[in-house]
């Protein structure tokens, strides 16, 4: 397990690099620390991965995490955030793209263990082929964690009829003064938007690709660094075009996979 501490009162951004197979990263955000973290998973098809991220957030700390699962093979990801200090904030955003026989399972738990903390989850899945994607997002509000505010949004796009997407927002609340809500949608590509684009001369396949990319654009907005955001955006585009092999063309890590 790799462990990192973000010192009190500092602000930093970090690219989280997970090793294939089984890996665990633990982060501690001390009081008023601010961290913007990005993680990218692009694993070879047919491989199996079990990846865990645990985070402990102290008073007034803030975490903005964006994760992109471009290829997961058979992938299980766990995220467990503990908000242990007053007024801590966490914003989690993730995009999962899967095709073929890929299986992606994400299990997210945000634990509000102190007063006045805020959490936000935004997860999008785009599935084709016979892939399956499951996202379980749970917000647990401990006794005493009053004035908790939490919001969960899940969106799924199934491109092929055989793909299966499942989102499970869950709330477990043991405090009485909280504001928690969630929403989930499963959709197909917007036919009216497709026609509009084709009328302008954009070929149907290209139009579909642009719309898929657009579907995860709000997740991309969680990457604060513009250069990195552009890079990931390009990787996603290559992924949709079927031009992306594991780590090919990706300069983000040292081709660890």
């Amino acid at each position: 397990m790799d462990s990192y501490v973000i010192p009190a009162g500092t602000e930093t951004s970090k690219f989280l690099q997970f090793s294939p197979g089984s890996d665990h990263i633990h982060l501690v955000l001390e009081a008023n620390a601010r961290l913007s973290a990005t993680a990218l998973l692009n694993m070879a098809p047919g491989t199996t991965h079990d990846i865990t991220l645990t985070v402990e957030q102290h008073e007034g700390s803030s975490l903005n995490l964006a994760t992109f699962t471009l290829r997961g093979g058979e992938y299980k990801g766990k995220i467990h955030i503990r908000l242990v200090g007053k007024g801590a904030e966490v914003s989690l955003a993730g995009a999962v793209i899967a095709d073929g026989k890929e299986r992606v399972e994400k299990n997210i738990l945000i634990e509000h263990a102190a007063e006045g903390c805020t959490s936000d989850m935004l997860y999008k899945q785009i599935l084709t082929g016979e892939s399956r994607g499951l996202i379980e997002g749970k917000v647990l509000v401990q006794p005493g964690a009053q004035k908790t505010v939490s919001h969960q949004t899940f969106g799924n796009l199934c491109i092929s009829p055989e793909a299966q997407a499942l989102s499970r927002p869950m709330l477990e609340i043991y405090a009485d003064d909280v504001k928690c809500n969630h929403g989930a949608t499963v959709g197909k590509l917007d036919e009216a938007a497709l026609l509009y684009m084709r009328q302008r001369g954009i070929p149907e396949t290209e139009a579909r690709l642009l719309l898929q990319h657009a579907f995860v654009s709000d997740v991309l907005q969680h990457v604060p660094n513009e250069e990195l955001r552009e890079k990931i955006s390009h990787l996603i585009e290559h992924r949709f075009r079927g031009e992306l092999n594991a780590c090919q063309g990706c300069s983000l890590c040292d081709n660890k996979a």
């Binding site: 917007d190 642009l210 990319h213």
Partner: peptide, 12 residues
């Protein structure tokens, strides 16, 4: 005319 959020006018 329809809205297409996430596809910028330039890219479109």
């Amino acid at each position: 005319p329809i809205e297409i959020p996430g596809v910028s006018m330039t890219n479109f």
